[in-house]
Amino acid sequence: MRPAWADIHLGALRHNLEVIRARAGSKRVLAILKANAYGHGLTRIAQELGDVDAIGVARVDEALQLRNAGVTRPIVLLEGFFDAKQIPVLAVSHIQPVLHTKHQVGQLLSIQDLPEPMRVWLKVDTGMHRLGLNPEDAERVYKTLEAAPQVAARPVLMSHFACADEPQHGQNQRQIALFESIKATLPDVTTSFANSAALFAGLAPDDDWVRPGLALYGISPFAQETGRDLDLRAVMNLQASIISVRKIRAGESVGYGAAWTASKDTWIGIVAIGYGDGYPRLAPNGTPVWINGKVYPIVGRVAMDMVTVDLGDTMSAKLGDTAQLWGPDLPVEQVAEKVGTIPYELLCNVARRVNLDYLET
């Protein structure tokens, strides 16, 4: 028996990349590995994706972790640098920052003794209203960077959809129109707009770069669909052992706060995973768990190290059996819907104490 662990299926990861490449055609692929590769293990996933065109992370320490592990692929720093002191480190490490404010641009251009010119990306806000230059500043700043001795080659122009997971949302076409108007002022500019949702929805067909994140890990970015519907395979199989089985009588309650009471005599199983492992504490009664080919409901409150599962009156599961919390047989999209969150959160919250076992399948 084991406490919580996750099998990481590298064959599924490779399959998903093939599906993405088929969708992307000749476009280059920037694989998004931020937040510990969405809980799958940053370094190992980066090493497995050795043939992608570049890797995207959010923080400087993530980028340096990959360099220290011997990853030589281009790395794009999606939030850029937070301090001018980081710029020389990025330059010598060949890490490409995304510049999304005039303040960052000014900091870069103020450095006269940069060890070597840097490749950079320039982000423009087309409607997300989170990060990015104002559209009216894009042409001027782009051309300034293009001519700057601190910058190697032309910047990549990028933006980000706010509603790509709802392909028919009017915001998408407004953002596309604005991005196209900016591109028209910059002949031969290289661009990147499409995340997983935009790629599978076909929202940015003229992109030079696509930026898949969620789809790499076998998850659908669309509501009411799972990765299976997009020919994707779940990479993570989050599991834990049943460490106790007991029978309770009708009227008896389970767990903290006596939050669930049995309506009839039933068997319950205690599974060795909890919110200390990143499983959502607020998972309600009825959240599915997959055991031996059958779905069982969680009952009672999620504890730090344990969840309780109603095994029914015939007890078809037993001590030592393995429970799948999400994975190939129980899509994480279904668990997220029951919990009232999104798959991103469930994956990214998997705790460091959960062992990751990498399998070639």
Rank of each mutant, 00 (worst) to 15 (best):
T185A: 14
D188F: 11
E225K: 13
E180P: 00
T191R: 06
N195R: 03
E225F: 05
R211C: 10
A215N: 02
F179C: 09
A194W: 04
F179Y: 10
R211N: 08
A198W: 00
S192P: 07
G213D: 08
Q224T: 14
Q173A: 14
T226V: 11
S159A: 15
R211S: 05
V189K: 03
L216R: 03
A164L: 06
K183Q: 14
A184K: 15
I176K: 04
A152L: 14
I176H: 00
R154H: 15
Q175C: 06
T190A: 06
S220N: 07
R228C: 12
M158V: 15
F200K: 01
V210L: 06
S220L: 06
F200R: 01
G170W: 09
A152W: 02
D206I: 06
G170F: 04
T185Y: 10
P167M: 08
R154T: 15
S196T: 08
P221W: 00
A162D: 12
P212T: 10
F200Y: 12
E166Y: 13
T226S: 13
S220M: 06
M158F: 08
Y217L: 13
D208K: 01
D208V: 05
A152I: 03
E180L: 07
A204S: 14
N172V: 11
Q168P: 07
T226W: 05
T190N: 03
H160V: 10
A184V: 12
G227Y: 01
L216E: 03
P205I: 05
L214W: 01
H169Y: 11
L157W: 06
I182P: 00
R154Y: 12
D206A: 15
A223Y: 07
P205L: 12
L157T: 07
M158A: 12
E166I: 15
Q175S: 11
L186T: 07
A201I: 07
L230V: 09
P212Y: 02
K183F: 08
A198G: 13
D188W: 03
H169P: 03
L178G: 08
V156N: 02
W209E: 04
G213H: 01
L230F: 05
I182S: 01
T191S: 14
F200M: 12
A198T: 02
P155F: 05
S220Q: 03
F193Q: 12
N195K: 02
L230K: 04
F222H: 10
F200Q: 02
S159F: 10
A204K: 00
V189E: 11
R211H: 12
T185I: 09
A198L: 05
L203T: 05
A197V: 00
I176T: 11
Q171F: 04
A153W: 07
F200W: 09
E166W: 09
P167Q: 08
A201P: 09
A194N: 09
F193V: 15
I182K: 01
F222G: 10
Q171T: 14
A152F: 09
P221F: 00
A177T: 15
M158W: 02
A198N: 02
Q175F: 06
T190Q: 11
E180D: 15
F222A: 12
A194K: 02
L216M: 10
G227E: 04
W209C: 00
R211F: 09
A201E: 07
